[in-house]
Design a protein around this nucleic acid. Sequence first.
DNA 1: AAGCCGGGGAA
DNA 2: TTCCCAGGCTT
Length: 363
Amino acid sequence: MTKRKVNKQAGKGSARFEGRARLLAWYARERRDLPWRRTSDPFAIWISEAMLQQTRVEAVIGYWERFLARFPDIRTLAQAPEQDVLSAWSGLGYYRRARALRAAAQAIVERHGGEFPRDAELVRELPGIGPYTAGAVLSIAFDLPEPLVDGNVARVLARWFAHEADAVATQKWAWERARELVPQRAGAGEWNQALMELGATVCTPQRPRCETCPVARSCAALAQGAVARIPRPKVRPEPVDVELVAWVVERRGAILMEQRPAEGRMAGLWQLPTVQVAPVRPELFPARLTVELEPGPELGVERHAITRHRIRMVLRRGELGRASLPERLRWVPREETLRLPLTGMARKSLARAFGLGKRAPGG
DNA sequence: AAGCCGGGGAA
DNA sequence: TTCCCAGGCTT
């Protein structure tokens, strides 16, 4: 009777508890063998989390391995020239992450003696580390009882509890839920990763695999037939069509390269000298170069996408007169171009025009 | 609260 | 093609 009562009490939240145990068991069984799951080094885990911001696992793996080979610890990263760090990041996108990573490494050396702090408040004060990344490193590397919410967790929890709301409200709601659910004694890291893993491999945005889901029997959205409409899709900004010309200018085995300004998008990265020809008001690139080029034949057309911009880029050969070069333009020997921090567009263009480095840098 | 930042893999 | 990703920062 007492026993029965206790069970009944537990039964109130039993769907939650039962689901939790099943999820953890499923994760222990099915989790992917990702390289950053083979280490407990907070630095290595931090790097993985920074790279995984808005970036898929498959895109990150190679970058993570090369980055750690090049910058094995916090002090090495803190002392590295910014261009070296950007170069290791070249092609991953969101380059502010790379600059913030280096700045945060320097802050950790200065404020925390080079040791990654174990205090949530101190971690949150580091550049590039927001609520998600702080929770991830603290829970995964140190098993501290910190919650986290990313796109996966928000979706999984919203479906699990059938919380119908727009993306912003869902995210906020999910943080409260995650805070309640995260194990307080031990296993926070496993729990957080289990939630994310479920979202990444089973409880996917489209066509979730509910028939193989370990928490299907306690999923409120599934019971209500509401899985497909939770969470509500985000309204996306209108795409903008942009036309560019990228100049291919050669001289004695060297290629004319342009460095982007230190501020703004893709700051400090290198590209083929590029101008925007449409729309008339330049949104991505300046409308003219700082030197005059004699136009030559067209070499090809490429498509790119940068945030909401859909780009059509014409590669055109050009000739440079005897003009003196401004600071931003530099002759770079062919083989050395790949060591620069190139934009993804530049990487593809060099591959097309010269057959250089079809794959990611340093690989 | 809303806008912005890169690139790519999967459907 | 479209979608959206182990988000964070700025305004």
